[in-house]
Write a protein that binds this DNA or RNA. Structure first.
Length: 402
RNA sequence: GAGAGCGUAGCUCAGCUGGCAGAGCAGUGGACUGUGGAUCCACGGGUCGCGGGUUCGACUCCCGUCGCUCUCCCCA
């Protein structure tokens, strides 16, 4: 009989992998709480349209990577491929803009994209995302990038922060036509995909990885040179703030995000070791309005937890384990001792097996025990236990006080 | 969507030119119910991913298929 297997791209998180994952996610959560972000638990399913309208009809995510399906009444739903769309939907649905002058939310949970699985990439993966609604000040962008940088520093993950500005409604159309004009001159050198996406979303051609395209856009006009007054000032101040915070960043004029909703600031934290982006984000000043809310500027970022965990070299050791060994007919006493040790805050395992003391200690070794707690008839009669350090072999008698 | 590599015991893997299915580790039991971290002995464990073909004979060769891993694209 064939064994069942998990669905392609969906995997079980456990053991050391899970310990790393939890270490990472807990560290990030703590950090977000320090920055006074408030958690929101969002549904995993939204109406398909929420994603189409926010991420963009022409993006790869929407065109070919969504788990979309119809419910029993024929409505189109989708498993969320990212968190921002849902966060914005919730922000509008609950009129959170009326609650506070600005709102800082974070969420954590599984995301779903129908992609070919590979190292650090799954069809179900996990993200923590943070969004600030209601502030157009570059101070916000700077603080968010600072938060990202702090997280990565504390995890000991070397990254480069890349930033760029992709302008706004005012300056991007002008730049777009300048860029289109340029691209039409070098079109014969572009890859097929780029020729195709040139008209749909010319900015994306800039960050194409195909060498020929990279070469072709080397002399391309840069968005940063075409920013309007407001965008230029925003970008300049952002850079000042980053310098003030001593955050090493690198300007990448070709940094363009794959989601349509971004405006002004975009940024990525890139691990140069693996050549992958671990945290990415940016500003999306029109999205709230586009999804039916009041005009509300916003910035956010998302971090891929599997990817980030993969880069973490060391996780803090677990609490030392105490192993209570009932030796002889003293199970009642052993149960009691185990409970008592746990009440003291210790991590305790009670041996569920019988056997000679030798066997029990062998068992202790295999379970990775730090302290063996031997309780036999002598111990029970005298109200004490024998504590043996499995690393040093030292053994002491510990009186139980009441 | 495109490409490459790999599927043999719970794990890591060997298996030659086609001829009885193997090892180490792990597991279980054992002179051993008051002292472990490489003592010894014994034992269990397999549809050789699946289907077909070639052959007297296939883990081995051929075709197909599924899965896993990795790369590109894309993305966190």
């Amino acid at each position: 009989m064939d064994k069942f297997q998990s669905v392609r791209g969906f995997h079980d998180l456990m053991g050391d992998e899970l310990r790393r994952f939890r270490y990472v996610s807990e560290l990030i959560r703590e950090k977000l709480l320090l920055y006074n972000f408030e958690e929101i638990v969002l549904p995993v399913v939204e109406y398909l349209e929420v994603f189409q309208r926010s991420i963009g009809e022409t993006t790869d995510i929407v065109q070919k990577e969504m788990f979309a399906f119809q419910d029993r009444k024929g409505r189109w739903l989708a498993l969320r491929p990212e968190g921002t769309a849902g966060a914005v939907r919730a922000y509008i649905q609950h009129s959170l803009y009326a609650l506070k002058p600005y709102m800082k939310l974070f969420y954590e949970g599984p995301m779903f994209r129908y992609e070919r699985p590979q190292a650090g990439r799954y069809r179900q993966f996990h993200q923590i995302g943070a969004e600030v609604f209601g502030s157009k000040d570059p101070l916000t962008d700077a603080e968010l990038i600072s938060l990202v940088y702090e997280i990565l520093s504390e995890l000991g993950i070397p990254v480069v922060i890349e930033i760029n500005s992709i302008g706004c409604k005012i300056c991007r159309p002008a730049y777009r036509s300048v860029l289109l004009e340029y691209l039409s001159h070098v079109e014969r050198n572009l890859c097929e995909v780029c020729i195709d996406r040139k008209d749909r979303n010319p900015l994306r051609v800039l960050d194409c990885k195909v060498p020929a395209c990279k070469e072709a856009v080397k002399e391309a006009p840069k968005m940063v040179d075409y920013l309007c007054e407001e965008c230029r000032e925003h970008y300049t101040r952002l850079k000042e703030y980053l310098s003030a915070l001593s955050i090493p960043y690198r300007e990448n004029p070709y940094l363009v995000r794959g989601l349509d909703y971004y405006t002004k600031t975009v940024f990525e934290a890139v691990s140069e070791e693996l050549g992958i982006t671990v945290i990415a984000g940016g500003r999306y000043d029109y999205l709230v309005e586009e999804l039916g809310g009041p005009p509300t500027p916003a910035v956010g970022f998302a971090v891929g937890l599997e990817r980030l965990s993969m880069l973490v070299k060391e996780v803090p050791a677990q609490e030392p384990l105490y192993f209570v060994i009932p030796f002889g007919p003293v199970e009642d006493f052993a149960l009691w001792v185990a409970k008592r040790l746990r009440a003291e805050g210790k991590r305790v395992e009670l041996s569920y097996r019988k056997g000679s003391l030798k066997k029990q200690l062998e068992l202790a070794n295999r379970l990775g025990v730090r302290y063996a707690v031997i309780v036999g008839e002598e111990e029970k009669a005298g109200s004490f236990y024998t504590l043996k350090d499995m690393e040093t072999g030292e053994q002491v008698r510990v009186e139980i006080t009441f």
